[in-house]
Design a binder for these strands. Sequence first.
DNA 1: TGATAATTGTTATGCCGTATACCGAATATC
DNA 2: GATATTCGGTATACGGCATAACAATTATCA
Lengths: 177, 177
Amino acid sequence: MTVSKTASATAAVDAAKPSRGGRKEPAEGSADDAALQLGELSELLGYSLKRAQLRVFEDFLRCVAPLQLTPAQFSVLLLLDRNPGRNQTEIANTLGILRPNFVAMLDGLESRDLCTRIRSTNDRRSHILMLTDKGRAVLARAKKLVATKHEARLNELLGPANRAALLDMLATIAREF
Amino acid sequence: MTVSKTASATAAVDAAKPSRGGRKEPAEGSADDAALQLGELSELLGYSLKRAQLRVFEDFLRCVAPLQLTPAQFSVLLLLDRNPGRNQTEIANTLGILRPNFVAMLDGLESRDLCTRIRSTNDRRSHILMLTDKGRAVLARAKKLVATKHEARLNELLGPANRAALLDMLATIAREF
DNA sequence: TGATAATTGTTATGCCGTATACCGAATATC
DNA sequence: GATATTCGGTATACGGCATAACAATTATCA
């Protein structure tokens, strides 16, 4: 597996993001008063990690905007689809969401008729979570948007091989670090 | 540049993190009721990106705990060291921090005598930011901790070449996505 | 069996990061 | 010199994330 150079390893100048909206506006006119030096910051993995994560989430939101789904909501729908018959604690734990915080999140999804809480007959404390038909439909559309717009753009930027390598390393960090 | 396989590309099962403290407790006794399937979630770059970022920041905090510095505070000290004579707006913009939110942050650093605000003589609106001697000393110790404990651990996990490739791709995303 | 402990969903609450609107002082523009 | 802009700052709000506590239900075990 080979990684082609996508940029000079010691690049990183002007990581500022003053304008919240569109990218690529070099402030043209002004001589721009000399950009700040990031220095060792560009060697800090956590720094680039955070910035990249913000950009990726930002793009995700834009791509899936017509469906009004956040990354967290999308992950919940994905998980409910793959793991029917689970309760709130199991789903929340898997996603690293604390049970108290998962309540409002489910309220939101349920109020939009994307999923349902069903009292379990085995254990009447727990709520079995299920996708509704609308939930499945929205998930299907979301998957398509994510694949064709969001992930496709990442593939275009990095190339399929690099993207796979990146994903693998990130998963490794998330799992073993 | 070559990337050795750090893990199977389609691994990812049981990404749960129920216990906030130490890792590596397989809950031994119980048969563990079958782990949930992440499914397409393990192919979502943003998902692994976020999880990896949380882990890395978590480790950063632990490594630099004796100095009581957050990643954001560390990045400010680094930037002040590399770019003396800049004002709040310039530093904040470079780090993607909004000016209003940068005020309290600087208050914290200044109250600990790590940096100082100096009224500029050229433009008496702006505050020139400077590291104090103590600030430079703390920064030096922090750099050492980050390099020998934090980044070293990442190097150990990924290998130097993979780590460099990862950093490069993250910077590319942060810059061009 | 019955007392005690543990689990589930939930509420309340707080902290932190982030975003916007607005202000006074100082400066820039024309 | 009038107007607009910029700088640091305050107030405020929203969302993510964390803990404590509670009622209902279930599990544990003397």
